[in-house]
Write a protein that binds this DNA or RNA. Structure first.
Lengths: 161, 161
DNA sequence: GCGATACATGACATAATAGTCTAGATTGCG
DNA sequence: CGCAATCTAGACTATTATGTCATGTATCGC
């Protein structure tokens, strides 16, 4: 069970846009250390899903389509990485058979569902606004705690991530 | 965020062994609808991780290395599919940079951790014994509820999976 | 209008995952 | 012993996820 790269990077891009109100691909790309093409691809997914709006042209860029409070992280992750346990799951895992052998007696399915529920419970409580608030606090805290530290020193303090 | 095929199939194989006390590759392969080679690969992972023991030769096969009560599903899934959020995660997702831009201010990391905790809480409560009990009950229930139904009828009742 | 700055899109290349196949080693039985 | 049933290991292939690239479209300011 893993988070996909698309979930990680896509969510980061969304946070960047939220923090800056408005941002262009080159800006986001620079901030997150992604190529512009890669960034464009991720933003395209977020835009098609209705989380952000785009404006073309000289002073164009992206901004949130709705207030951050109304953007649930669960929805964002679903678009970027799919549902953990979706309806097609069992159909896709019937091995060589056309039908899963466990019809009517699938004890694993219940575990998957429980996990899905637990994850949903966490995610439904978190909106983009929560993440933005957290990011802002962290940035403000930084100079106080770590003023004067070089990058390689910082790495040790924070154990990288 | 997805379950991997290896997690799904590997766990199923373990359940089959638990239910039958002892099972061979051809048996498990038949029950789960997997090729024998595929089954062998999955069992090899489970064996190396110490969940099952193997015996070669004519009357060989696999059996649980410990009582099902002592086999935590969390451990099994970790071996089959890795941790959801492990230490190398952020290092692997720094994009083109050698170091993540969010050192010291990573709001996403906290979401990933919360999800990881929620999943762990669910999984730590479940042992292989719980899954075996559930599987046995389901099998016993079947004839009562669905006696006389053909496969294609069953499919409709149970909505496949 | 035209050039600079942006976004849009789909084909392509690369890497990770999933699953197959070949060859070999071990054990029990007659 | 020699054969059949069983596990073991690792190379190979196919599929999917990731990320790049080339090309095209829209908007603004001059």
């Amino acid at each position: 069970m893993k988070f996909s790269a698309q979930e990680e990077y896509g969510l980061r891009c969304l946070i960047t846009i939220g923090l800056k109100e408005s941002a262009t691909i080159p800006e986001i790309s620079r901030e997150e250390g992604l190529s512009e093409h890669h960034t464009a691809k991720l933003l395209s997914i977020l835009r098609k899903a209705g989380f952000i709006n785009s404006t073309r042209g000289h002073i164009g860029g992206y901004r949130l389509a709705r207030p951050a409070e109304e953007i649930a992280i669960s929805g964002v992750l679903e678009v970027l990485g799919g549902k953990l346990y979706d309806k097609r799951f069992c159909a896709k895992h019937s091995g060589l058979l056309t039908m899963c052998t466990h019809v009517g007696s699938c004890s694993i399915r219940s575990v998957w569902r429980q996990i899905q529920d637990a994850v949903d419970t966490v995610l439904d409580r978190v909106s983009l606004a929560d993440l933005l608030a957290e990011a802002e606090v962290s940035i403000l805290d930084l100079p106080k705690d770590r003023a004067g530290l070089k990058n390689h020193e910082l790495r040790q303090v924070t154990n990288v991530h």
